[in-house]
């Protein structure tokens, strides 16, 4: 609407300069304005739209095609449901890799949503309430994001290694000669991954939630404080409803990645100790084994299953609080 007003103003201005009541001239100017606006809009969105068509629409269409294709011994593709058969067989089997990968991805998703996200909200609230050394602590929470995952995992591995502080402490406490293999056995590997995710997973959420909290009008909070509201009441009755659009966005986008939540499996365990998730399983099939059909079929099945879950989550979070304009 704004652009319509401005083009109108600009065209009136031009028309006034060229002799006001000249109708054909006026309509020519209007046409030129409309064309230049359309050209501008088209050029501005052309490349992103083309990118979307190629890397999203075509890639996903191609992924669906791959799920139904198999290679014969002559290197030709033929239509087949065998990829789906393999996926379902692997899921049905107790020792199937797909079943294990789905289970681990769900664990990572739940860990992110029900542990890391709420903690991020509480931590952001303390920063918002200006806890002592706020800037320093906020910077420290960002360190894992600033440093490369390769570097952080290297440090983490050495910390838990036989010569590392955790390894040495573990040996002392449990009277062992060698530190346990934290990254390669079923007993420890998953726990080690979850602790790593906890140590490194706050920064993104803290940034978003903190940004939303900083926009809450101070007079609203001050008025509530004058009414004698406590800290927890402020968090749950004022802060939470007012940052809900941001929080709901994070929840929905996290739900959208429900089964592709990737833990740092590649860098820390490479799937050892039954820690492979969907993301690593697909990476392993494509990059290491050069298989396309089975991971594409698995992706398609999981997309069909998780789509209604995401829609339900989105519907649910929109019901909790109304959007607040401030």
């Amino acid at each position: 609407m704004q652009i319509i007003n401005s083009t109108k103003a600009a065209s009136e201005m031009t028309a006034a300069q060229t002799g006001g009541d000249n109708q054909p001239q006026k309509s020519k100017v209007k046409n030129r304005q409309r064309i230049s606006k359309n050209v501008f809009v088209t050029l501005m969105v052309a490349l992103p739209v083309l990118h979307f068509c190629v890397f999203y629409l075509y890639a996903n269409f191609s992924s669906i095609m791959l799920a139904f294709q198999r290679l014969d011994k002559y290197g030709n593709y033929y239509f087949s449901m065998e990829n789906f058969g393999q996926v379902f067989d692997s899921f049905a089997s107790d020792s199937g890799m797909v079943r294990q990968a789905v289970k681990n991805s769900l664990i990572f998703f739940c860990w992110n949503t029900f542990v890391i996200l709420p903690l991020s909200m509480f931590f952001s609230f303390f920063f918002y309430k200006r806890i002592a050394l706020k800037s320093f602590f906020r910077f420290m929470f960002f360190v894992p994001t600033i440093i490369s995952g390769v570097a952080v995992t290297t440090m983490y591995k050495f910390m838990l290694g036989n010569e590392g502080p955790v390894g040495v402490l573990w040996k002392l406490v449990f009277d062992l000669k060698v530190a346990p293999p934290f990254f390669s056995t079923e007993e420890y590997a998953m726990g080690t991954l979850l602790i790593y995710m906890l140590l490194t997973g706050f920064s993104g959420d803290i940034l978003m939630i903190g940004g939303a909290m900083s926009r809450i009008p101070e007079e609203t909070v001050e008025a509530a404080i004058l009414d004698g509201i406590g800290m927890w009441k402020e968090l749950f009755s004022i802060t939470l409803p007012m940052i809900w659009p941001t929080l709901s966005t994070i929840i929905v986008t996290t739900a959208a990645s429900v089964l592709c939540s990737s833990g740092p499996v590649l860098l820390l365990t490479a799937g050892a100790g039954s820690t492979y998730d969907i993301s690593y399983y697909i990476y392993d099939k494509v990059q290491i084994q050069g298989q396309y059909g089975v991971p594409a079929a698995l992706g398609l099945v999981l997309t069909v299953i998780t789509f209604p879950i995401v829609m339900f989550t989105r519907w649910g979070v929109n019901k909790i609080y109304n959007d607040v304009e401030f």
Binding site: F55, V252, A255, A256, S257, G293, L302, F307
Partner: peptide, 24 residues
């Protein structure tokens, strides 16, 4: 329409498009 598609693309959980992306 474009806005709806953009938001839908953000919330549709696309899983396993890596093989197609890699090939592309």
């Amino acid at each position: 329409t474009m806005m709806s598609i953009a938001i839908l693309a953000m919330v549709i959980p696309i899983i396993g498009s890596l093989p197609a992306q890699y090939k592309l």
